[in-house]
């Protein structure tokens, strides 16, 4: 008999013994949903305000710009301040215009997706900043959602010290419940959520940013007004 058969056999035997666990209050779900609804802003601008407030609480930075040009101007300024002349990025329609404009300002773009696995990790780890585009922003916790089908690489986000994430104004979601309702199941298989810069408090509970991932996270919302 295989281990699988033995384990499943033991489970079936155990489950023949009737549970003496607590009876559940089935109204919990309704109360959660109605409570969530009451605290969820309806307008897009209010969702972004909530996102900004939450992101800033966890040491993230938020900016919004009317145009890609203005965003590119800002990004170039940040990179110049950090003395960074190359950013790692991925192929994304959302980033195309911004990338073009920061290239004009003399910033080199390293496209992680064009490199094979071995070179991709080594090259990306040697770059200090990344320009990425998450699939969604989650308002109630200041979170970014990266679905691999959209991003195709996670290295720029995780291996560079400074991350600049550009999000579409309409890609804001109220909370994770809504995200899992909206997202296609296939896409949820390989994805990652990011809530602020990487951090640890493992030494005497002192918070230090930049544990193994980025030390700085800047989120940019392009309004395209």
């Amino acid at each position: 008999m295989s281990s699988k058969e033995k384990i499943l056999g033991r489970i079936s035997e155990a489950l023949k013994i009737k549970s003496q666990l607590r009876i559940i209050d089935n109204s919990a779900d309704e109360k959660i949903k109605s409570s969530l609804k009451s605290v969820t802003p309806e307008k897009l601008t209010d969702l972004w305000s909530q996102f900004k407030a939450e992101l800033e609480k966890i040491a993230g930075e938020y900016y919004s710009f009317n145009t890609e040009e203005a965003a590119a101007e800002f990004i170039s300024g940040v990179l110049a301040e950090l003395k960074i002349d190359t950013v790692s990025s991925h192929s994304s329609e959302m980033l195309a215009a911004v990338k073009e404009r920061i290239k004009e300002k003399g910033i080199k773009i390293s496209d992680a997706c064009s490199l094979e696995a071995g070179a991709r990790k080594q090259v990306t780890a040697g770059i200090n900043a990344s320009l990425v585009s998450p699939s969604f922003a989650v308002a109630d916790i200041g979170q970014l959602v990266f679905m691999m089908d959209d991003a195709e690489t996670s290295y720029p986000y995780f291996l560079c010290d400074n991350t600049i994430a550009v999000v579409k104004n309409e890609n804001i979601i109220a909370n994770q419940f809504e995200l899992f309702e909206k997202a296609e199941v296939e896409k949820t298989k390989n994805m990652f959520f990011v809530t602020g810069p990487s951090r640890t408090a493992d030494i005497e509970k002192v918070l230090v940013l930049g544990a193994h991932g980025p030390r700085r996270l800047i989120v940019i919302n392009i309004l395209n007004k």
């Binding site: 991709r120 691999m148 195709e152 949820t188 390989n190 990652f192």
Partner: peptide, 24 residues
């Protein structure tokens, strides 16, 4: 666990990805 509203990362693994995305 840590007194945070959300943990910094949640990573989902749904199978080998190297062939599809060139990494992982």
């Amino acid at each position: 666990a840590t007194g945070q509203k959300s943990s910094t990362y949640v990573n989902f693994i749904g199978g080998p990805t190297r062939q599809k995305y060139g990494e992982g």
